[in-house]
Design a protein around this nucleic acid. Structure first.
Length: 407
RNA sequence: GGAGAGGUUCCCGAGUGGCCAAAGGGAGCAGACUGUAAAUCUGUUGGCGACGCCUUCGCAGGUUCGAAUCCUGCCCUCUCCA
């Protein structure tokens, strides 16, 4: 099976500008393609991960990837598919985010001569001259068409600033620039980037009379149509300091039944035959599939050792219910004790298991706190130094475990 | 620039002088049921030294015994006109 066919089989392709041509290019390793990453945060997330895996897949098939860091476009902010404007970032923040991105990317993609290259669009975008740009590039864009673009739909109600409207032009210019200077003939990206990407192919056609291609990756949606890779607290990050390998593992371990196979297919590098075999699984057998998914992804992102650890912790907690060394731990200082003990409410707050004492009280009153396998019955319960010296296992709800011990 | 509408708690959205820490829904959290799933049901969702007190309804002032609600100024958004 060739790479294009594999991408289709994995359900990764959302839209393409010219199927035959793209198939021909990537199946024969003739594509030089780019994917843009705007430095919107100090860590990559699952959406970026998908793009990077696609990049890796194509690289393995002999194509040449260009990672484009959006040092310039990040200054503008992509309005695509958003209901409100992104907050403006300072140059320093953007630079910091770019540095963070670089480090994480090097884990996935091989950079170097004849391998992948990395560029920053600040290098050319920030040098543009307004009047020149308007005359050279601006003429080729129809405002009427831009406003009709799907990605701005939501913004037509809430308001779209001129700054943001220009995002599409910048991204189109990037493609044009890379085409001219790096022979980049293809752009990939999330499906929400479709309009922006078409802007680029159109610009190349109009300015150079050449064809370039674009292809989008299916957005990872769950069976309810919501974007995956997000929790109530925010994105699932690839940075272990923002989302620990265990949390990361658990996120995938707890995926809905209806979404497991799709995720395995789209996100892992497991052979398709093996995945097709899992397709038959039903009911609680899916737990096994979820574990495979969680393990594979944790391995890709955090390495085999961390993946194994996360898996062990998960087993220890949910299967056996015993203690484990990898549990998040809070050390209690002497000053935090009164009469050689600490109230359960204070302890919960201290460990970050509750945002406030009120929340902690509620939690206890609703029977959601278990200490060392015993349910806490009263909000006045105390934990003594002796207990803390041996370490105390706190369980909040069904899935959150924490350990507290004396420093 | 002109005319109109509007900014409410995590989000949507009610409330137009006291009964408002603010309806309803969504989302979250906890409990039951389960397979660490989904669906469903129940409770809960500003803070604290908690039958009380403090902070919150765009921002800053003012009127009043009392303001999310009335007045003044400012900021922001949308719609129509230019």
């Amino acid at each position: 099976m060739q790479i294009y066919e594999e991408l289709v089989a994995r359900g990764l392709i959302a839209q393409v500008t010219d199927e035959e041509e793209i198939k021909e290019l990537i199946n024969n390793g003739k594509a030089t393609f780019y994917i843009g990453f705007d430095p919107t945060a100090d860590s990559l997330h699952v959406g970026h991960f998908m793009a990077l895996s696609l990049m890796k897949r194509l690289q393995m098939a002999g194509n040449k990837p260009i990672v484009l860091l959006g040092g310039g476009t990040g200054l503008i902010g992509d309005p695509s598919g958003r209901t409100d404007m992104r907050s403006m970032m300072t140059l320093e923040t953007i630079q910091h985010n770019i540095d963070c991105f670089k480090k994480q990317m090097e884990r996935f993609i091989e950079f170097g001569e004849d391998k992948a290259i990395m560029v920053n669009n600040a290098d050319w975008l920030s040098k543009l001259n307004y009047i020149e740009l308007l005359r050279d590039v601006g003429v080729y864009f129809s405002v009427n068409q831009m406003l009709r673009a799907e990605c701005y739909k939501q913004r037509m109600e809430k308001g779209l600033s001129f700054l943001e409207l220009n995002y599409m032009i910048m991204q189109s210019y990037d493609f044009y620039y890379l085409y001219k200077n790096y022979g980049c003939n293809m752009q990939f990206g999330g499906d929400d980037q479709w309009s922006n990407m078409l802007g680029g192919t159109e610009l190349i056609r109009r300015k150079l009379g050449k064809d370039a291609y674009a292809m989008t990756i299916t957005l990872l949606l769950n069976s309810e149509g919501k974007k995956m890779g997000k929790t109530a607290k925010g994105a699932v990050w690839l940075d272990p300091n923002k989302t620990s390998p265990f949390e990361f593992f658990q996120y995938w371990r707890n995926i809905g039944d209806a979404d497991v196979l799709k995720c395995i297919r789209m996100l892992t590098f497991l052979p398709l035959e093996q995945i097709d075999a899992m397709d038959q699984w039903e009911g609680s057998q899916l737990n096994e599939a979820k574990e495979i998914l969680a393990y594979e992804l944790t391995k890709l992102v955090h390495g085999e050792e961390e993946a194994q650890k996360a898996k062990n912790t998960s087993h220890a907690l949910f299967a056996a219910g015993t203690d484990d060394a990898n549990m998040p731990t809070t050390e209690i200082e002497n000053e935090q004790l009164t009469n050689s003990a600490i109230g359960i409410i204070d302890l919960l707050v201290l460990c970050g298991l509750s945002a406030s004492k009120s929340e902690a009280r509620r939690l206890v009153q609703q029977g959601g706190v278990i200490i060392n396998d015993t349910k806490v019955e009263s909000i006045d319960d105390k934990i003594t130094v002796e207990q803390l010296q041996n370490s105390v296992k706190i369980r909040k709800g069904k899935k959150t475990y924490h350990k507290a011990l004396m420093k």
